[in-house]
Design a protein around this nucleic acid. Sequence first.
DNA 1: TCGTACGTCGTACGTTGTACGAAGAAGTAG
DNA 2: CTACTTCTTCGTACAACGTACGACGTACGA
Lengths: 204, 204
Amino acid sequence: MAEAVRLADREGVGELSMRRLARALGAGAMSLYYYVASKEELLDAMIDVVFEEIELPPEETDWQSAMRRRAVSARQVLARHPWAIGLMESRTSPGPANLRHREAVTACLRRAGFPVLTATHANWLLDSYVYGFALQEASLPFDTADEFADMAEDVFLPQLPVDEFPYLNESAAALVAAGFDPAEEFIFGLNLVLAALEPLRVPT
Amino acid sequence: MAEAVRLADREGVGELSMRRLARALGAGAMSLYYYVASKEELLDAMIDVVFEEIELPPEETDWQSAMRRRAVSARQVLARHPWAIGLMESRTSPGPANLRHREAVTACLRRAGFPVLTATHANWLLDSYVYGFALQEASLPFDTADEFADMAEDVFLPQLPVDEFPYLNESAAALVAAGFDPAEEFIFGLNLVLAALEPLRVPT
DNA sequence: TCGTACGTCGTACGTTGTACGAAGAAGTAG
DNA sequence: CTACTTCTTCGTACAACGTACGACGTACGA
């Protein structure tokens, strides 16, 4: 499992084949099938490994701090394993780590005073934001702020005719000037979402 | 392109091969390569077909209504083409329809009075929500509310030991009782996000 | 000593993306 | 009409894929 995740991180999930994984483990291809019924099952298990890496919301703090921590952790983990995001779409049954995670998040929200159905709404909203952000971040063609500045000036701006895309040009320029940090960008939206949820609590 | 999208919708993107697509078109496999340099390029083009289906924010209404319309449309389209979500993670260069869409959204936000960088934040937040929601919706193992109720009682609840997952049991039960409609769920979070963004506008 | 279970893997089959180059179709110039 | 170019189609071939099947060695309790 760990080697499979490492391979997917390094080369992309498209390059992960049973034969390559076996070779990386110093084994024959068919040996893998003793531990895993199919490649599908391997991918399911890999997703659960990723979920295991995400911090659970700590219990001792206020709900906003707790949710912020786990959301930030989730973003970091998904940025480390970008292939996991694309995989989730096709895989429908959650693994044990996934379930434990959901339980902990729901518990945190319920204890914070969100009614049952409201907690579900909050869950959808928060998870949507986290996954969607990770998805967008994964499809960025650069990794660091410097790389972004370089690419913006050399690639994006020349590709965007000013008369056809005036607003995109404007914001690209502003972004280059201000610098772009995914972690900060993430926190900004996250704080808005958390603040928007706050009034939905029912004081206990 | 259209046939490729239809095939992916019907059978999943995993079942889309150059040979199958060619057969569906009544052509030889290699003929496709006259129109497309590689399968990668085909997938890129398919994504752009999907973006073309998403409604642009209308210009004549207030910004919240405009963004709501385009977000709702985006969710519908992505629910129709779930494979597109998973594909976005690996594809880094946006197609023309994608760019047009981004331009229109940014224009709408800027005209509504959001400062340049704030508009970027809003864009990330809104897109994250839309994509993340679509991703979660795509990984649901059911399609309709009735199907959900059936599955919840027959599959989920028996799988979730009450003592280990008390909160998940509670919300699953509440959801079965209340019914679950993805479209409504989506609007709920969307309205929260829009309301959270409202005060960031600068009156013109 | 032997049966059973555990773990490994070689071979083989059908399918995949696509490099290469041949071949027909269609248009243009003389 | 012919000659030549450009457009479009596709057959073949190759390496890599997932995995069904069955053979094999080893460990261990009886």
